[in-house]
Design a protein around this nucleic acid. Structure first.
Lengths: 143, 143
DNA sequence: TCTGACCCTGTAGTAAACTACAGGGCAGGA
DNA sequence: TCCTGCCCTGTAGTTTACTACAGGGTCAGA
């Protein structure tokens, strides 16, 4: 009984497209705030949690680690606190995103070029993708 | 002595820009063929191994997993085989990269907007990053 | 009331890709 | 000769992000 407000963990999990265990894991990891419980101990999630989980899923698909995402989430979570650190954090994330985009664009260019060059129906000996990967065109270092 | 035959593991590692332990790890994982040994058991790598390690490093930098790379390497080993799978692998990576770039650009826009428009004391409900990213997308799926 | 799906906690296992010893052997210069 | 630095094997630990039980309680429909 009581307020039938909110979703069960299974419901939010389904809506967010992740597993129930994963939802609990995110809670343990501080990505999802512990929701209110029913008298019998069941979690009851507000609709906001579904959005938060979707956010996590999307951010993960973009290559952010859970630690990154935790930080991103604080951008909306700190209401009255000083705006300066929040703003700084946002700036830092923004820079990180721009760097990520730049790195991916570089990869895209290289790979795209290679795919264009390789006809696809030739023997591997004539496929420049493999040659290109073998070339030592630069020095050690990277992500 | 005309040591001319090959590099030590430390030498290949340095040349490839990776650690000695990583080289042995790649050998265990079947990415690098076991090199000949000296009488005392030291590995002696041919120059080809350096190129192979460079191949691995480059492919990794482009987002290929070690499993992908193992496949690429076996494909490369058969010069008469069709390059179709190679191309497909590269194409798949490319598609992934393009999608990531698109999503990151969206995120960049949202975050940039947030930094510009949220002076800090605005209620968090008015900071739309979470909503915007929560909608960014599609159905549940993959990684 | 019963049944089966769902929820709880807590612990442990998995996968990828390393990374770090421990305990010993060799090589080459002072 | 000795010392230092590199090499060997084998095992175990690390990080990230889950995923899988075990053992038990709860809820809603037939």
């Amino acid at each position: 009984m009581t307020a039938t407000q909110g979703f069960t963990i299974g419901q939010v999990a389904r809506q967010a497209g992740i597993g129930v265990e994963t939802v609990r894991y995110y809670e343990r990891e501080g990505l999802l705030p512990p929701p209110p419980r029913s008298a019998s101990g069941y979690r009851h999630y507000p609709a906001d949690s579904v959005r938060r989980l979707a956010f996590i899923r999307h951010a993960k698909a973009l290559g952010f680690s859970l630690a990154d995402i935790r930080e991103l989430l604080t951008l909306r979570a700190e209401p009255g606190a000083s705006s300066v650190p929040v703003r700084q954090l946002a700036q830092a994330r923004l820079t990180e995103i721009r760097e990520k985009i730049a790195a991916l664009e570089k990869m895209q260019q290289i790979l795209g070029h290679l795919v264009d060059e390789c006809p696809g129906h030739v023997p591997t000996a004539e496929c420049p993708i493999l040659d290109a990967l073998a070339e030592t065109g630069d020095r050690p270092d990277n992500t």
